[in-house]
């Protein structure tokens, strides 16, 4: 039930952002379409734990994003330096490792964070194994048993399904 409420609020915020008008008539239309979309999402069973992960704590998510921005900045500088280096010192490497996340949200977050960081790309991702392509050998060494792995494990929460 909490998930439905948070979906309603999020969709309505998006409506207000897109329209930018505050007349009662338009806000009423917004409420109507938000309710319709939420009903549809519930009917199609896509407003679940994976589609709308409202169980994650906001503080944990925001602090993870701030840390990720710092990582993107650092590795982005490295990749930019490699590109502008006349010798182009790349040593492309494929590496396999087992992620320690248990939930689908955790796996997806980890894989997307690796891809988002310049210099490493997740080629295959499932619960047992990640296949990561890295621009340099050092970058490949950095994704196995990384701090990112630990941080995502921390904020993904428990594996238990909740009923709402």
């Amino acid at each position: 039930m909490l998930r439905i409420a948070s979906l309603l609020v999020a969709l309505f915020a998006f409506w207000v952002l897109m329209s930018g008008m505050f007349s009662p008539f338009l806000l009423g239309l917004g409420v109507a379409s938000v309710v319709a979309v939420t009903w549809l999402a519930r009917h199609m069973e896509i407003a679940d734990r994976e589609g709308h992960p409202a169980h994650l704590r906001l503080v944990a998510v925001v602090s993870y994003w701030l840390w990720l921005f710092k990582e993107i900045w650092l590795s982005g500088l490295k990749v930019a330096r490699i590109i502008l280096d006349p010798r182009l010192p790349v040593s492309p490497t494929l590496v396999r490792f087992a992620p320690s996340q248990k939930t689908a949200v955790g796996i997806a977050t980890h894989a997307n964070s690796i891809t988002l960081t310049p210099g490493t790309i997740t080629v295959q991702a499932n619960h047992q194994e990640f296949l990561v392509h890295a621009l340099t050998r050092d970058g490949a060494a950095g994704v196995v048993e990384s701090e990112m792995n630990r941080r995502v494990r921390e904020f993904e929460g428990s594996d238990l399904e909740e009923n709402d």
């Binding site: 993107i72 900045w73 982005g76 990749v79 930019a80 490699i82 590109i83 502008l84 182009l88 790349v90 492309p92 891809t115 988002l116 960081t117 310049p118 210099g119 490493t120 790309i121 392509h133 621009l135």
Partner: peptide, 29 residues
């Protein structure tokens, strides 16, 4: 500057997978 750097990388990199790393600079930084 980062966008142009990424585009230069897109041209300079030797193979498809390394080119994707250059493109991800444009997308992020």
């Amino acid at each position: 500057a980062f966008c142009i750097t990424g585009a230069i990388g897109l041209l300079r990199m030797p193979d498809f997978f390394t080119r994707m790393h250059a493109a991800s600079i444009i997308d992020t930084l």
